[in-house]
Amino acid sequence: MTEEAKAMEVQEQERVPEERTERIRDKACYLPQSDIFETEENYHLVLDMPGVEENSIDITLEKNTLTINGYTDVERPEGYSLARAEYNIGDYERSFRLTDQIDRENIEASYENGVLRLSLPKAEEAKARKIKVKTG
């Protein structure tokens, strides 16, 4: 693949827009960069959330909204002075609206090396939703 050889670039950190609500934590909150892809059986979400501990990730599903929260607690080195800062450390938050075609009971999540992967299985009825033509 030619794409494999391409050089990586620093991506801009996009802040979560604050609409009506304000944050309590004194940290900025960023939108994690995400990939979404679909297979025959599943939808997949892949989110970059470096610096988050596995147990400080919250995934909630309310009605049709899937919300992912990640809280960072990266310690700053004590006794050192900051000489160069090129990126900010903050929490992560992102919401996705799901369609009715998801089997909500069987959503799976795994976190490894700063990457969160979610697999959302398609509901049975969505997989084989064929319209039968009635003959009169």
Binding site: M8, Q33, D35, H44, V46, D48
Partner: peptide, 12 residues
């Protein structure tokens, strides 16, 4: 698989 969104980049 088909991509709906691809924001994460990769490469060297």
């Amino acid at each position: 698989a088909t991509y709906h969104r691809q924001e994460r980049n990769y490469g060297s």
